[in-house]
Design a protein around this nucleic acid. Structure first.
Length: 623
DNA sequence: GGGAGTTGGTGA
DNA sequence: CACCAACTCCCG
């Protein structure tokens, strides 16, 4: 008789011991009786016969995590401080049931892919560079032709009998990349993201098994598919925050996990971006691919006014309308961040210790740093120009649509945001309507920035830029510049385009909009030594429906961390209420920690994690 | 996750 | 005291 420890996928249940007549390999899926019900679990260990009586494993399922998945499982459990139970569901979408996989009917053999794009001289250089370096960053301007390089790399990997993964953020929003890949790889491509129906998911899994699918284009969850011969991972738009699973547990980052796999296996990893994160730029060898194609002429217009329909904006929109062109108007919204701005020069106040924007607490009439809890009185006047400071006003997309409709009675205005674009169908419809010219002004949130092609747009507007720059997040500058560059890219794909930035910080944008390299160099001075890549961060979030209890747990947690100082090197940056104080009717507190390596932070996370304490290492969101 | 067992509030 | 909902315990 064999005895095994079984972890139950997705259940908040301890690892339990079962027996089996036959030997079962580690990380094989099984059904085991739990409270009399057959339940999906995985063998995680063999063990001695225990002192208590054990039940038999009911069924050994024809499903076993492969070598890559096993490494991922162990690494995520360790690094993101998550029990196996919580990590395992990543590998088998629960809506699929457990054993779809009938034996593959036929195994497809490798018919070579001959079709590949022609590469320019520069693209060829980049291609060679990526081949020489096992892991590398392709730092290529928009329109410099990164996709052709990816496709050439993928072609070679597939022709060597390997599988390839093409990761992108929010894939549900980029159907054009799919058709592009299909043009080269036909039936060998499958698209994978959370919105694919269970039926299609089962079909794709089957086709991965029988090797008819060799390339997966997908969102972060595609990283967990059973790819036994994975040879290449491309992470496109590597700077994008949606690679990090901030919303649910475990809080893994698919880009970082791809790099982990690259270091552990014979897998090539390419990260690509026109606006790489400083962290990646600092960590990896990069090839700098400059824009070669038609440099479309762009005019930047700086509208030094607070968020709203200013005279400059009215004028520019009128020009666009009378030229029978279209405009995209981006109004990035950030929930729950109140702050002060100077009425005259737009100055925002930053924490002297953390260099992130200070939040304004209206009731207490005080400015507070979200990171370190530093408080200061509301200044009576602006430190830069001496004018009055007032609370920066908020503007929502719906409100903006109303204002535009009132101002431009003949213009057709449409909204493009999370509320409106809920499905792929709606997205397609909205894009079609816009490209057919049925809409003149398209108002939206960050969603507008994602790589959609708009043909007749000659004006791109980004409002509320200064709020983004003043956001209490150490990456506020990086993210804002990246967003602004992307939105600007929507204007004037053909011919001339105008870009209006509603900002007082025109110096920053004049310097860096066309010099991201310069920005990265400058940003080092701002990040070193307080923030990544020069330091590591850990964020703990305490949430409880009882406020006193939440605050008690916070204090207990901080006390526990203080005790760990004896053995570990780290710094408590600060602790207190979260930016979003109540979420899902729970009161929220946070602790923010810094260390020079991940090790002490992982140790702290392990010591603190619990029912009411969520841990987030390498956080990208500070809500 | 979910069934069983426990607690605690409410109302006649 | 009967009833029910909310909470907590625990599964091998």
């Amino acid at each position: 008789m064999f005895y095994y420890k079984v972890a139950f996928s997705g259940l908040n249940v301890a690892i339990l011991t079962y027996q089996s007549e036959v030997k079962i390999s580690l990380f094989n899926a099984v059904l085991a009786p739990l409270k009399g019900k057959d339940t999906l679990g995985y063998i995680v260990n063999e063990c001695e016969k225990p002192s208590f009586k054990t039940l038999n494993v009911t069924k050994i399922l024809p499903l076993c995590l492969n070598k890559i998945q096993t490494e991922l499982l162990n690494f995520i459990a360790y690094y993101y401080t998550s029990p196996f139970n919580a990590v395992l569901p990543l590998f088998l979408p629960k809506e699929l049931g457990f054993y779809e996989s009938k034996n593959a009917s036929k195994i497809f053999t490798n018919k070579p892919f001959l079709n590949a794009p022609n590469l320019s001289q520069n693209q060829k250089k980049a291609f060679d560079f990526l081949n020489e370096n096992k892991t590398a960053l392709l730092f290529g301007d928009t329109g410099s032709g990164k996709s052709e390089i990816y496709i050439s790399m993928i072609k070679d990997a597939l022709n060597m009998g390997k599988q390839a993964l093409f990761l992108m953020p929010e894939i549900s929003l980029t159907p054009q990349m799919q058709s592009r890949l299909e043009r080269y790889f036909g039936e060998s491509v499958a698209v994978w993201h959370s919105k694919i129906t269970p039926k299609n998911k089962a079909e794709i899994l089957k086709n991965i098994k029988n090797k008819s699918v060799k390339l997966i284009a997908g969102a972060r969850s595609a990283l967990f598919l059973p790819l036994d011969d994975l040879g290449l991972i491309v992470v496109d738009e590597e700077h994008d925050d949606s690679y990090k699973n901030s919303a649910s547990k475990p809080h893994y980052n698919a880009r970082d996990l791809a790099l982990f796999l690259g270091a552990k296996f014979n897998i090539k990893v390419i990260l690509g971006s026109a606006t790489p994160s400083l962290t990646t730029f600092h960590k990896l060898q990069n090839f700098r691919l400059k824009g070669t194609f038609f440099k479309s002429e762009k005019t930047y217009i700086f509208d030094k006014s607070e968020v709203g329909l200013s005279q400059i904006l009215k004028d520019e929109i009128s020009k666009t309308l009378s030229a029978k062109k279209q405009a995209v108007i981006c109004l990035p919204t950030r929930a729950n961040f109140r702050h002060l701005a100077c009425v005259q020069c737009g100055e925002r106040i930053k924490c002297p210790f953390c260099s992130v924007g200070m939040s304004f607490y209206k009731k207490e009439q005080v400015l507070k740093c979200q990171y370190c809890e530093f408080k200061m009185a509301v200044p009576s006047s602006c430190g830069r120009c001496g004018s009055d400071m007032i609370e920066a006003k908020k503007l929502g997309t719906s409100e903006l649509v109303e204002i535009l409709e009132r101002e431009f009675a003949n213009a057709r205005v449409a909204k493009f945001d999370r509320d409106e674009i809920t499905t792929q169908n709606r997205l397609k419809k909205a894009l079609n309507a816009f490209n057919k010219g049925e809409i003149d002004l398209l108002v939206g949130t960050q969603m507008l920035s994602k790589g959609h092609d708009y043909h007749n747009v000659d004006l791109a507007v980004i409002m509320g830029v200064d709020e983004l720059l003043a956001y209490p997040d150490f990456r506020a500058r990086e993210r804002t510049l990246s967003l602004v560059k992307q939105v600007a890219g929507r204007a004037g794909r053909k011919g001339q385009g105008r870009v209006v930035l509603q900002t007082f910080e025109d110096d920053f944008f004049r310097r860096f909009l066309d010099d991201y390299d310069g920005f990265l160099a400058d940003e080092v001075g701002f990040r070193d030594p307080l923030y990544p890549p020069f330091a590591r961060l850990l964020r703990l979030v305490i949430s409880h429906k009882n406020e006193r209890e939440a605050s008690r747990i916070l204090n207990e947690c901080v006390a526990k961390i203080e005790h760990l100082r004896l053995d570990l090197e780290f710094e408590i940056i600060g602790y207190g209420k979260c930016g979003i104080e109540i979420l899902a009717s729970k009161y929220r507190y946070e602790v923010l920690l810094r260390a020079s390596s991940h090790k002490p932070l992982v140790a702290i996370a392990k010591a603190c994690v619990g029912e009411f304490i969520d841990v987030d290492i390498d956080p990208v969101a500070f809500l």
